[in-house]
Design a protein around this nucleic acid. Structure first.
Lengths: 69, 69
DNA sequence: CTCAAATGTAAAGCTTGCTTGACTTTAATT
DNA sequence: AATTAAAGTCAAGCAAGCTTTACATTTGAG
């Protein structure tokens, strides 16, 4: 699962710790999700969507298999 | 978290087992999510969104606190 | 009413998401 | 070069999502 967190966070000039506070999760959780170590829970994805005022699908994209041409 | 799974599934006349097959999860998982026992993982929410060709936000809604009037 | 399919429920166990605490690395500033 | 904030990483532990097996209840067709 790819995501645009780093980009969205940078636009707002928030640190990972800032974002963690707003989401009410730990800084390590934000870091792990940003780095793609794991996917957020659905409730956390909703919080991110609200915070960034964007649909979940615009923040997270399933990496789909490349068509083999 | 509320969801419209039962409704969407009924529209297509699929059983919980049918849906479980398409999602590649167990029937009990479909049942539990439909009944609101727990939220799906984000990847599973994406599978549902693709299957029902609907945004995640249109399938799942965070139940927000009622304004106290 | 009967029978079968569908739905609901429960327990035990594995995997994944998230926490805290601690430490290291990177990048920017002086 | 030294300092500091931010980012990255690791380990141990708890919580949530999902599995399998098994059984009970509900629904609907005949």
């Amino acid at each position: 699962m790819n995501n645009r967190l780093k980009e969205l966070r940078a636009q707002r000039r928030w640190t990972q710790a800032d974002l963690a506070d707003k989401l009410e999760v730990s800084r390590q959780t934000v870091n792990a999700i940003e780095k793609g170590k794991y996917d957020p829970s659905l409730p956390l994805a909703f919080k991110l969507a609200r915070l960034f005022d964007s649909p979940i699908e615009s923040i997270f994209q399933e990496e789909t298999l490349e068509p083999s041409r």
